[in-house]
Amino acid sequence: MQDIQTLVALTGWLLKATLMMSTPLVLAALGGLFSEKTGIVNIGLEGMMLIGAFSAVAATYFTDNPWLGVLAAVIAGGMLASIHAIVCVKYKGNQIVSGAGIILFAGGFTTLMLEVVWGVKGVSDSVTRLPNVVIEPISDIPILGVALGAQSPLVYIMLILVVVSWFVIYKTPFGLRIQAAGEDPSALDAAGVSVSSVRMIGVVLSGCLSGLGGAYLAISYASEFGKMMTVGRGFIALAALIFGNWTPFGCLIAGALFGFLDGLQFAISILPEFSFMLEYVNFIKMIPYVLVIVALAGIRKSVPPKAIGTPYEKEARG
């Protein structure tokens, strides 16, 4: 009996940790989805998350309202993404180089601003966290109650955004245009729709969503900004996007898988029930990255948008 209770408690706890750890990944992966579905590769998710995390803490620090922090993160992510959009769409620059530039810029800029705002090199002052939302009716259900009963509002928002993204991409006119821009921009052009604006909007949306992911890390999961605090989550999100075959629910499942491994590792280090795995913890830490390589090597067959990575040029002659 004792065993079963422990098992139920642990399962609930692991689910909760999985949701917590996967939220920033899924949000950024959804961001990547909106960019890459329109045909623009966005490896800059990492940088957009980072600037989102910083802006969230800074805005909360000055206003003491974490929701304004969230708003600031979304705006800052979107603004950084608009640079990527202008470089890649308007000037048809190399998308990888631009994305790398975004990451480097965000790293440098946030480190510098850390010193400007708080005068420190490593970690900012603590700020008010986003309060957890408690959903009374389900909090008593075993497992589910623990997992979903009391979570950060951004966890629920993430789940809602997965559904919304699916709806927008597959059920609305704008989604049809997004798909067309990524599959064959010339078809979209011939249909009388501006390829540039669809791609611009897609990229900016990717920044907003990544920024939201960053905000979760900074003012919901933590309550401060640390130098380079995203530690590669933007890249894991990119892998989740590929793993999830460029679909919203795929992003959720892949993000949850990575989040689960993250959560497991977390559990091992703090829960006595898992202490027997302690000696393997470094191995478990490795798994997400191995999975990334496996995902990228394409063991699972995933189909990217056909026109991904290529700037759209009107044909010179037919």
């Binding site: 798909q179 067309a180 599959e183 064959d184 078809a187 056909k306």
Partner: peptide
Amino acid sequence: HFKLIPTL
């Protein structure tokens, strides 16, 4: 060259 998107 048709302006059609095969996946749709």
